[in-house]
Design a protein around this nucleic acid. Structure first.
Length: 843
RNA sequence: GCGGGCGUGGCGGAAUGGCAGACGCGCCGGGUUUAGGUCCCGGUGAGGCGACUCGUGGAGGUUCGAAUCCUCUCGCCCGCACCA
């Protein structure tokens, strides 16, 4: 009695059954190798979208496959549940962020169950639960103890849309907020920072320890950390009368070898000395024009390289330590206060920006490093004194060359990391006027947020004792639920929350009302999954030692810097605290591509969304899972197409029919005729070849070709049924093929495979508890092999020989086959590629 | 400008230096069906009646053999960027 494939009658049935049986709960098992398969946890936005389907389907196939390969597999899920969208939604719907968040989590969890994902639900975390966020607060206190928390006043990114500050990483390249796209403003505020810069070098170096990460992501992180090697150089400041003072201004440069070509000196408009220099002088008006213009400009315009560089002379001079020259100090908007020291030595002959500025304001451009093939080379080679104060060039020369007009250093090699660079720095260091230095682009991580729906910062402001940490015993600082965000309230509007006493002196004090950046919550959740229900500690190191590091992490490229950099930082600090024994949390990283429609990313606002629920309603979850994996390799962007979906539906229907037919026939006791006929041998070979291919492909994340291989096996199996009359078929083999196919399909279409395994093939135990089918590479090889015979690179004949035929036999047979193409010519070379082809060269 | 990546049929995509286009979609033809859909069978890179010839953005090179390796070049995508 055969039924057709009807996903709707089986999917929910098995989901309930798996749940009841606790099929996906895992514990540490000392006798099995472990695998930790993790997909980036979602923000509970409510509906799931195709990006989720793709991300979590990839992880689910990998997790189920490793389980069938006999591993102990940790595959958890949770929710990154704090954050601004909940507040915005609450305001819109006159509700509470908690209510909205928990409702969405329920909804999304239901969708995930509906997809049949094999999560260990016992380990779920929700970052807005006090049982979770208390350990985030604990982590903050531990960072504080280690000197990694700093509260400081500085210019910070303020998003007027989100009404809070942002970390540098959360401002997009165009100067807008990563979440709401408002133009970010600079404000001078006192905020909390985590000192990620203390780990800058290690974060950079350890990228080399991550061969399992995409080059692209590592390049982006290296770029973001932005290490540059150079020197600090101290310039002596002159007073208003032009006489040297005791004060120096330090600059950072990557090219100390060009110091002799410094013809002016620059300060950022925000530099505190600017105002001091010009107030009450004839230069004040022009300089303050530049300062005000820079302040008014958004960071978008400010960072445009095309823009005309604006500047003004401050009336002051500094003294160049290498030659004692007095150099004029200018202010210019192309100097950034945030990078280096906010002051720059300008070498217009060696730096395009300085070159442009010098041309605009008619400043000298003395050449100091020239290439051997430059027309100036013969004129200046070996010349120590400055004889030429300008260049005939159209652009600056930043490449390597020979130093000229550079005193005692003349004749040395100049350029990045050059002999001259080292020599000049050493010379300066001996005189205390400079030193080797390394500068990073990475800034400390600003983590305080002026928003309600987040993890409260466990700190107390005491008028007597200053800023005091909340004692560990008092954790968690509970986020109060009676804050009404619809009225625009934050923690700062709730005296019941902030009025407290100082834990040190007992006097009246004020509790911190800022909350933490939600990226702090997602920087350690993968560790908490290892011991999610622990109320006495953040985790038991024995458990993290067992499960960690994550063997396979899967998520979107949008976290290439943000989440992945922060998590690496947290892991390194936990390591220094002795809480974990490894330095990198994610051994292998897969960044999946986007799901697009009509060439554009699917988004509600664009209106080009295909809802997973609609596909599930029509085809079931299994078809959707298999199809989204079949469409493209996982790291590539994918163009959604509804037509192709029918192809996957047909394949699953065909597989279903084949397996049910064979199951009935074998159950009816049809005798196996173990004939050694070619068709039977072919099917047997295919069975072994395909199991091998599917296994390899899953391990390489080639889910599309794994599914193709299963289609090939099914096609061969149908050819056999049609080509060989009933009664002459090897029913035992067909039964084996049907069972094997069911096992191969199990990670992709878990419900269908389960129904086939238990209800059709009549097995008692879940298909998901079975071992992955074995395969014998030798059995995949035919006893006869067809060789292609090439003459001068063109295939001229085909040759079938026994698989074990020795090479010289193959060679002779091949020459015989192509006699007509060889006749009258000299055979110059014969290459036999075993099992593939014979290449004959004649001439 | 710096860094990373990609160019293969009508489409999505296969191919660990060894027969380019697996598998699927679409399309064409046929069968089953009262009909449509489902389902089943066959065909499907281009040119040629044909044996054959040409084909992986373009031009060179290495090799018996190149989609794959090297050099140059064109086009596209992504990241960073007045970072001193």
């Amino acid at each position: 009695m055969s039924r057709t494939y009807d996903p709707h009658s089986i999917e929910e049935k098995w989901q309930a059954e798996w749940d009841a049986a606790g099929l996906y709960s895992v514990t540490e098992d000392a006798f099995k190798p472990k695998k930790y398969v993790l997909e980036m946890f979602p923000y509970p936005s409510g509906d799931i979208h195709m990006g989720h389907v793709r991300n979590y389907s990839i992880g689910d196939v990998v997790a189920r496959y490793f389980t069938m390969r006999g591993m102990s597999v940790l595959h958890p899920i949770g929710w990154d549940a704090f954050g601004l969208p909940a507040e915005n939604a609450a305001i819109k719907s006159d509700s509470h962020p908690a209510k909205w968040t928990y409702a969405n989590i329920e909804k999304q969890a239901t969708s995930f169950r509906r997809m049949g994902f094999s999560y260990d639900w016992d380990r779920t975390v929700r970052t807005c639960d006090p049982e979770y966020y208390r350990w985030g607060q604990w982590t903050f206190l531990k960072f504080w103890e280690r000197g990694l928390v700093e509260r400081k006043n500085s210019p910070v990114n303020w998003c007027p849309g989100c009404k809070t500050v942002l970390a540098n990483e959360q401002v997009l390249p165009d100067g807008t907020c990563w979440r709401c796209k408002s133009v970010v403003e600079k404000r001078e505020l006192e905020q909390y920072f985590l000192k990620i810069t203390e780990y800058a070098q290690e974060l950079l170096d350890d990228l080399d320890e991550l061969p399992g990460w995409p080059e692209r992501v590592k390049a982006m992180q290296a770029n973001w950390i932005g290490r540059s090697e150079g020197a600090e150089v101290d310039f002596t400041l002159c007073d208003a009368a032009g006489e040297p003072t005791d004060t120096t201004i330090t600059v950072f440069t990557t090219r100390p070898d060009t110091l002799f070509g410094c013809s002016f000196f620059l300060l950022a408009p925000e530099h505190p000395l600017v105002r001091e220099f010009v107030t009450g002088t004839q230069y004040e008006a022009a300089v303050m024009d530049v300062v005000r213009a820079a302040a008014k400009e958004s960071s978008i315009d400010r960072s445009s390289a095309e823009k005309e560089k604006r500047g003004a002379f401050t009336g002051r001079y500094v003294i160049n330590p290498v030659n004692g020259e007095k150099v004029p100090v200018w202010v210019s908007d192309y100097v950034l206060m945030e990078y280096g020291t906010g002051a720059v030595m300008a070498v217009p002959s060696g730096d395009q920006r300085d070159f442009d500025f010098a041309r605009t304001y008619d400043l000298p451009i003395p050449p100091v490093v020239v290439a051997e093939d430059d027309m100036l080379f013969s004129q200046l080679s070996g010349v120590r004194e400055r004889v030429l104060a300008d260049v005939p060039w159209e652009v600056a020369y930043a490449g390597p060359g020979v130093m000229v007009q550079s005193g005692a250093f003349t004749g040395m090699r100049g350029g990045k990391a050059s002999e001259g660079m080292k020599a000049v720095t050493e010379w300066l260091a001996e005189r205390g006027q400079g030193r080797f230095s390394i500068n990073f682009r990475l800034r400390d991580w600003l983590i305080s947020r002026q928003r309600y729906w987040g993890n409260p910062i466990p700190a107390i402001h005491c008028p007597e004792c200053g800023l005091v940490p909340v004692p560990e015993a008092d954790l968690p600082v509970m986020l109060p639920m009676d804050v009404d965000v619809t009225k625009g309230e934050t923690l700062a509007d709730h005296p019941e929350f902030y009025e407290t006493t100082c834990p040190t002196c007992g006097g009246a004090a004020r509790r911190e009302t800022d909350t933490m950046d939600t990226f702090t919550c997602s920087s350690w959740y993968y560790l908490r999954y290892c011991d999610a229900r622990n109320d006495d500690a953040i985790w038991d190191p024995a458990k993290t030692d067992y499960w960690m590091p994550v063997d396979q992490y899967i998520g979107g490229i949008e976290h290439a810097i943000l989440h992945l950099l922060y998590s690496r930082f947290f892991t390194k600090v936990y390591r220094d605290m002795g809480l974990v024994s490894f330095a990198e949390p994610f051994t292998n990283l897969l960044t999946q591509g986007m799901v697009k429609l009509d060439g554009a990313t699917m988004s509600k606002s664009r209106g080009n969304v295909v809802a997973p629920e609609e596909i599930i309603a029509k085809y079931g979850a299994d078809t959707l899972r298999a199809y989204i994996l079949f469409m493209a390799p996982p790291d590539k962007d994918l163009e959604w197409s509804n037509e192709g979906l029918d192809g996957m539906w047909r394949f699953l229907g065909r597989a279903w029919r084949y397996i049910t037919e064979v199951a009935e026939e074998s159950a009816a006791g049809a005798s196996g005729v173990a004939a050694g006929d070619p068709a039977t041998k072919l099917l047997s070979r295919e069975r072994h070849r395909v199991v091998g291919k599917v296994s390899d492909d899953i391990e390489r994340f080639q889910f599309n070709t794994a599914l193709s291989a299963m289609m090939e096996l099914l096609n061969t199996a149908y050819d056999y049924r049609r080509g060989v009359p009933a009664g002459s078929r090897d029913v035992g083999l067909e039964r084996d093929v049907a069972e094997t196919l069911t096992l191969l399909l199990a990670p992709y279409v878990p419900h269908m495979a389960e129904e086939l395994w238990r209800e059709v093939l009549g097995r008692a135990e879940s298909v998901h508890l079975q071992s992955w089918p074995a395969w014998d590479p030798a059995a995949a090889v035919s006893d006869e092999i067809e060789y292609a015979v090439q003459v001068n690179g063109k295939v001229r004949a085909r040759l079938t020989v026994a698989a074990d035929a020795p090479e010289d036999v193959v060679r002779e047979a091949a020459l015989e086959q192509v006699a007509e193409h060889v006749e009258g010519k000299t055979v110059r070379k014969v290459v036999v590629v075993p099992g593939k082809l014979v290449s004959i060269v004649v001439g």
